Amino acid sequence: MTDHSPITIHWFTIDNVDKLDTPALVVYPDRVQANIDLLKTMIDDVARLRPHVKTYKNREVTQLLLDAGINKFKCATIAEAELLAICKAPDVLLAYQPVGPKLHRFIKLIHAYPQTKFSCLVDNDVAAKEISDAAKRYEISIDVYLDLNVGMNRTGIAPGFEALQLYMDCAVLPGINPVGLHAYDGHIHDIDLEKRTERCDAGFKAVLKLQQDLHGKGYPEPVIVAGGSPTFIIHAKRKQVQCSPGTFVYWDRGYEVGIPEQLFLPAVLVITRVVSLPDATKLCLDVGHKSVSAENELGKRVYFLNAPELIPTGQSEEHLVVEAGKGHHCQIGDVLYGIPHHVCPTVALHERIYTIENNTLTSEWLNSARDRKITI
């Protein structure tokens, strides 16, 4: 970005960027569509896809997925579930165990959107009983998936005897209907695909055994929902497993580098401007913690496509200071195009995302499910 010769038009260049205040999140819909099309070529049956809405959080991408023949979805919040229901998604799994007020909101959701089939997770008897009592009280039946801990160590019950017993307990509780097993292995993200596959297969063995044990006891064979983006192509080879990648629609720098065999296109960028020149070698940009995910170390938050040489040295709520080196030609107002290292929480920081079509700012999509509540 260092010279001011005539601008080279790249895929990401915004011709009318002077109309865009920064920091801003922008999306390239043609690249989103290309990513959806690519995903469908990576699995034998589109019916086995259950993408996670947490990455994009808006109606427009949901509609693109529905138009592509994808009818099953996964989400983590009541707002995300309601967004999907508003779009008339047929099948929505709340990949969370609803307890307390969240359970009551979940029940309201089921009543408010009867055209959508909702299900949720459970990993203990106490929550299972609470869900059962609520379902019985409101005279409904709720499908539940047993949440299995295959190494994430945050929620879930280890696949084995206790999990078998919990599934059987759920089967006799009124108002709930155990239908499957949920195994999220997000802790597995080795760059080397062979190593990633080895770890994924090792963790999945106990899940498969639990499925077989339950079927052997006379239960309908439980559906298995497994994996995220890093293990998607591994689970996609298992003929009966539903796969739930999420990041593929937008992609990001973390997966671009960390999962090189998946050739999805970065489709979302954070746009920022140089707002100050603190000294002869540094730039200050208007992209702080409030506009790009900051859970990673400083060097893994945003990668600038038109200035990859910049080295971040400090970040606060509204600013990012970068080292540009001696003799740089950057000026106040220069525009930078950055790929977020982690796009999912970055999207959650922005109430809207601006669409770029044919290198032109055209419209905006509301990230309505970034809020904790839409109507319920």
Results as ranks from 00 to 15, higher is better:
89 A>W: 04
92 V>C: 09
92 V>H: 07
93 L>W: 02
93 L>F: 05
94 L>Q: 04
96 Y>C: 07
96 Y>M: 12
96 Y>W: 13
97 Q>G: 04
97 Q>S: 14
98 P>Y: 02
98 P>M: 05
98 P>H: 02
99 V>L: 06
99 V>S: 14
100 G>C: 03
100 G>K: 13
100 G>R: 12
101 P>Q: 13
102 K>M: 10
103 L>C: 08
104 H>Y: 11
104 H>V: 11
108 K>N: 15
109 L>P: 04
113 Y>K: 07
113 Y>V: 11
114 P>E: 11
114 P>F: 10
115 Q>M: 12
115 Q>D: 15
117 K>N: 14
119 S>K: 01
120 C>V: 06
122 V>M: 02
122 V>D: 04
122 V>T: 14
125 D>V: 01
126 V>F: 11
127 A>Q: 06
127 A>L: 07
128 A>M: 09
128 A>V: 05
129 K>D: 11
130 E>R: 13
131 I>L: 04
131 I>M: 09
134 A>L: 06
134 A>G: 07
134 A>N: 09
135 A>T: 06
136 K>R: 09
137 R>Y: 11
139 E>R: 12
139 E>D: 15
139 E>G: 08
142 I>Y: 00
143 D>M: 06
144 V>W: 00
144 V>M: 01
144 V>N: 01
145 Y>I: 03
148 L>S: 05
148 L>F: 04
149 N>K: 10
150 V>T: 15
154 R>W: 11
154 R>I: 14
157 I>D: 01
158 A>M: 10
159 P>C: 07
159 P>I: 03
160 G>Y: 03
163 A>Y: 03
163 A>L: 08
166 L>E: 01
166 L>Q: 02
167 Y>L: 00
168 M>Q: 14
168 M>T: 15
168 M>C: 13
170 C>D: 10
171 A>L: 00
172 V>Q: 10
172 V>S: 12
176 I>V: 12
178 P>N: 09
178 P>M: 07
179 V>K: 14
179 V>A: 04
179 V>I: 15
180 G>E: 04
180 G>M: 04
180 G>C: 09
181 L>N: 03
183 A>Q: 00
186 G>I: 05
187 H>D: 07
187 H>G: 12
188 I>H: 07
191 I>Q: 12
194 E>R: 06
195 K>Q: 15
197 T>Q: 13
197 T>W: 07
197 T>F: 04
201 D>R: 13
